[in-house]
Design a protein around this nucleic acid. Structure first.
Lengths: 238, 238
DNA sequence: GAGTGGTCTAGACCACACG
DNA sequence: GTGTGGTCTAGACCACTCA
């Protein structure tokens, strides 16, 4: 049969059924799937119901739909995920460890042209700059070098970032609308090595994160992690 | 007014309107949003239509809905994205560059216990192992060390991977169902350094990718990129 | 009980693709 | 023209929450 967990909503049953068939290879990538009308018959539900099931499968990237043509099993080269911008503090506490933040620098500066451009400001405009070392159980874990658009967080310089992380504070005061990430490996500079208590040139995982609000960029952060003390993981399911 | 691109579907208009209000800060995170009944009145559409708009906003993580309570503006700490498992060949060609793959190793081996476990096999079972160097315009870009579950791709060893990449081949023969990634920075080992034409110990970006089919794991790949020749980028929008 | 979201229905009109 | 998906409607029943 086909109904282990009964009492599931009809649209969900249709969806589950099709997902299972896709998983089984019953419909290999590119194959034509049953039309809405056929599913209406097969499941004895209304067309709106099967439509919702198929629409959600399409949104999840499991099938592709072409008006006037039909519904096709997708090439599953895409998998969707929800990426969370996590606060490092929460992340560390979640592991049951102790988090400490040392504010190495916190001031206003004049932005050189390239930085200003990425923050949507004019060259030489004032930006807030913070440099914070995060430690997990007293071991350096991340060096956070961050520039903030003053328009997005006017009170940035007045915060005590040994108590609340910039990430947490900024998520509060400046709703995030869009984000970009870049990840690369880089050798530690002399200054980075000193703060992180590693050797100069040692491999580091560097994440550059830029977040944008509705009207203007909010912040650009360069997060440097010593090799092997940090790893980005994520899992993806259909 | 509120209708730049007229002739938009009603559910999409409702959605766009709410998105714009969320973006404006009209509903700060946690704020109660209008009920379906109110939106029905306001837009003069049926409840199913506003329901769809709200349901999709919820799916996108823009709002949270609680039955019996209401709809609330979400904390935008989560941003969703679709991650694509791209074939390196396509990626390089898309840049207008030339891709070359050198097959350094391609054979069956006995899997040690830890590897076997991750591939869903018994210790000592046969696995396929390939080691391939990818070059972009004759410069080493990625060293791909890959283990494959023979059940998922029985003909793996018979392929010519200088012509078709393992990624491409496996996406064809074994529909991917789930994936896990880990990214870390690591110094190049002596062997890796030699193949990649870099110095031993140089910082490398290492991605370990495990893909799983419906019934069993398909493959585990360790992709090593020399520092500064590779960067992972992605952008996220609400 | 009143208000909320979750869902289903039966029918309808439309745009599109294909022969 | 026939079949496909895209969408909307008006009304309905239900489960849930809160007062």
């Amino acid at each position: 049969m086909d109904d282990p967990t009964a009492s599931l909503a009809p649209y969900a049953r249709v969806k589950r059924h099709l997902k299972a068939e896709l998983a089984d290879g019953r419909y290999p990538p590119g194959a034509l799937m049953p039309s809405e009308a056929e599913l209406v018959q097969q499941f004895g539900v209304s067309r709106m119901t099967v439509n919702r099931a198929l629409r959600e499968l399409a949104a999840e990237g499991m099938v592709e739909r072409l008006q006037g043509v039909g519904t096709f099993a997708a090439q599953l080269h895409k998998v969707s995920t929800t990426l969370t911008i996590r606060d490092l503090h929460e992340e560390i506490e979640a592991r049951g460890h102790h988090h400490e933040a040392r504010v190495l620098l916190l001031r206003a500066e004049r932005a050189p042209a390239p930085l200003a451009a990425r923050l949507g400001l004019k060259a030489g405009a004032e930006v807030f700059h913070s440099l914070i070392l995060h430690l997990e159980n007293s071991q350096p874990l991340q060096l956070e070098d961050r520039y903030v658009n003053p328009a997005a967080a006017p009170d940035y310089l007045a915060q005590d970032f040994s108590r609340v992380t910039p990430t947490h504070y900024l998520l509060d005061v400046a709703p995030l609308w869009e984000a970009q990430f870049a990840i690369e490996a880089a050798p530690a500079s002399a200054e980075e090595a000193q703060h992180l208590a590693i050797a100069e040139g040692e491999a580091c995982l560097v994440m550059v994160r830029r977040t944008v609000g509705q009207k203007a960029p909010i912040t650009i952060a360069r997060l440097v992690h010593p090799d092997s003390r940090y790893q980005i993981d994520w899992a993806i399911k259909p």
